[in-house]
């Protein structure tokens, strides 16, 4: 059965898909940046929003993915989009390795460790580790992505690539959220002792959440590399991780709608505030505080889970008769 809400969503998406027709290249590119951050924030949302793990180093996985793609593409001439799965897998593997020993850390201790990881990654990239990353100069000359024989280079072409990927992400993560796995993560977030008591292997679930988030961020790295054509360590600083963290919390931890809105506000507002000239980041900081004060749970917190109780009853009756 198609619900009214779904139709509204599809209609909204259809209208949004027409955006590049009316916007110029600049605003289309702003939307592209928003899209990239939205996907990244959605992947962080699994770890931070759904599972409640304080992760402030998400740019590390993004970096691993972007550099994997860039190295494979520039050194071995593998078409960029083909490197996407591998970028994801390496980022996921990296996530598994670093998260394994630290997953039991509590709250703020985990936070500083993830900050440490993203800083170590940045320093390693800057120091040209293994002679692969090009140091501070980064890697240049990355190919544009090719899709069905079409070279993607203009902002409106990227718009469809990025937001198409974003749509897939939303669909999959929505399914994940409502699965047994998603409910387990929420349980861990709310009360990990009780969750463990109910037979949830919390370390394992936390690790899986970490790996999924890292995997997805790694794949976004591929698109980023194709869009910028040059990547350098500065694009993956601690500050990027802070932005992603802010998007998820401001949007409302664990809510996909909220994260999307958060991405629009955090990435879009500084562009809108350009009229304030050099005061624009000042206004932005004040806006962040104000939004948090007036919506303390985030802008669009997750709705309580609803279950159609009558369904269970009718099923039970059916069995009786």
């Amino acid at each position: 059965m198609i619900k009214k809400q779904d139709i509204l969503c599809l209609a909204g998406a259809a209208v949004f898909a027409c955006a590049p027709l009316v916007l110029d290249a600049y605003w289309t590119d702003v939307l592209n940046n928003i899209g990239l951050y939205a996907i990244l924030a959605l992947s962080l949302n699994i770890i931070l929003g759904q599972c409640g793990l304080f992760q402030m180093g998400h740019a590390a996985f993004f970096a691993v993915g972007a550099y994997t793609s860039a190295i494979l593409n520039t050194m071995f001439d593998i078409p960029l989009l083909w490197t996407m799965p591998l970028a994801g897998i390496l980022a996921g593997l990296f996530g598994l390795i670093v998260a394994r020993p630290i997953i039991h850390l509590r709250g703020d201790y985990l936070l500083i460790v993830t900050i440490g990881i993203v800083e170590i990654i940045r320093i390693a990239l800057i120091n040209d580790v293994g002679g692969l990353t090009g140091g501070a100069n980064g890697i240049f000359g990355i190919d544009r992505p090719m899709l069905f024989g079409l070279k993607i280079k203009r902002p409106y072409q990227f718009f469809y690539l990025i937001w198409g990927f974003c749509a897939v992400t939303i669909f999959l993560f929505h399914r994940l959220e409502n699965s047994r796995f998603g409910r387990a993560l929420n349980y861990i977030k709310d009360d990990d002792v009780a969750a463990e008591g109910s037979g949830i292997d919390i370390s394992r679930y936390k690790l899986i959440a970490f790996v999924i988030g890292a995997f997805w961020a790694g794949m976004v790295g591929t698109i980023f590399a194709g869009k910028m054509k040059i990547i350098s360590p500065e694009s993956f600083s601690f500050w990027e991780s802070v932005l992603l963290f802010t998007i998820v919390i401001l949007g409302g931890m664990g809510s996909i709608r909220g994260v999307l809105l958060g991405a629009f506000l955090i990435i879009g507002l500084p562009e809108l505030f350009r009229d304030f000239a050099s005061a624009r980041m000042l206004v932005f900081g004040a806006a962040m505080i104000a939004m948090m004060i007036f919506r303390t749970q985030g802008l669009l917190p997750p709705l309580p889970r609803k279950y159609d109780v009558s369904r269970f009853f009718s099923k039970a009756e059916g069995e009786q008769s």
Partner: peptide
């Protein structure tokens, strides 16, 4: 156009100038 000494903003500024 302002590029704010930042690569991502620079890409945006370039788009604006080209258009």
């Amino acid at each position: 156009e302002d590029d704010a000494f930042d690569p991502k903003t620079a890409a945006l500024a370039a788009q604006r100038l080209v258009t």
